[in-house]
Amino acid sequence: MSRRKGKTSVLTALIIFVGLVSCTNQPQQSFRIGAIPDQNPEKLNRQYKLLCAELSRELKVPVRYKPVTNYPAAVSAFRTGSLDLVWFGGLTGVQARLQKPGAKVIAQRDIDANFRSVFIANTTSGLKQINNINGLQVLNNRRFTFGSESSTSGRLMPQYFLHQAGVKLSDFNGNQPGFSGSHDATIALVQSGSFEAGALNERVWISAIKNGRADPKKVKVIWRSPPYADYHWLAQPNLDQRFGSGFTDRLQSALLGWSDQSSTQGKILELFGARRFIPASIKQYSKIEKVGRDLGKIQ
C-alpha cells in the first residue's frame, strides 16, 4: 500500500513540474483582430484566416483573429483593449468609440456608406408593399421580429423607422417584438409563418434569395429603408505607440489598397461581400449615434 502511495506522489510531483515549466514562456505581442461574426463558422474561418495572413504580410506583425459572438462582448473587448482592430456594426462601432475616446474609424466597405434594411413579410400574412414610411403602421398588432438586439440593420434602424412611423414596440402582437438572434433566423422565422413580418440587413436578404434560402413564394420584401452608414473597421487609439509610429496609417492604407487584382485580396473582399474598402469618417455615424441615444441604446 505504502509503495503505491509513494508512486502516486512521485507521479503527481512530476506532472506539476511539467505543467509549471510549460506555463512560463511569454508569447510575442500580436495584433489582435476581432469581429462580431454574422456568418457560418466555416466561411468565417476562411475569411479571417485569409485576412490575418494578408495583414500580417503587409504590416509585418503577427496577426491573430479572436471571434466574439456577442455584441456587447465585442464592445467591451475593445474598451478594455483586448482587441486592436474590430469589424463593428454601426451601433456597436459608435458604442465602442464613445467608450474608448480617440478610437479611429479606419475604413468601411463600398456598400456600407449606403446600407439599407429591408422589412419582409410572409406572403400569407396579407401584408402589402409599402410605399412610404408611414405605411409601416400596417405592422400594428402583427407578429414582428427583429434580429439580434444590438444589430444596427436588424434592430436599431428598423426600430427607428418604425418609431418615425408611429409604431411602438408594444404595438406588436403579444405586446413585444421577437428577437430572432440573427438575420438568417429572421428570414427562416418569417418564412415559416411563426412571425408575420421582420426586418433585416439587405445584404443578407439578397444573398438568401440568391442561394435559395429564402423562398420568394413564401416571403417577400414589403419595404426597403432609406440608406444609412453601417459596418466599419474601428482601431485602438494607441496602435502607433504599440506597433511603431505610422502603424495606424499603414493599416488604413493596407486595407484601402486591397483590390480584386490580387487573388488573396480579391478572395477576402469577396468573403466580405464588397468590391473594396473605402475611407470612412466619424461624421457618417452621427445619425446612428442620435438614433441610438433616442432609443436608449447609447447612454
Partner: peptide, 10 residues
C-alpha cells in the same frame, strides 16, 4: 455561429 446562419450540418 452555425445556429445564427442556420448551418445545420455544421
Amino acid at each position: 455561429l452555425s445556429l445564427q446562419s442556420l448551418a445545420f450540418k455544421e
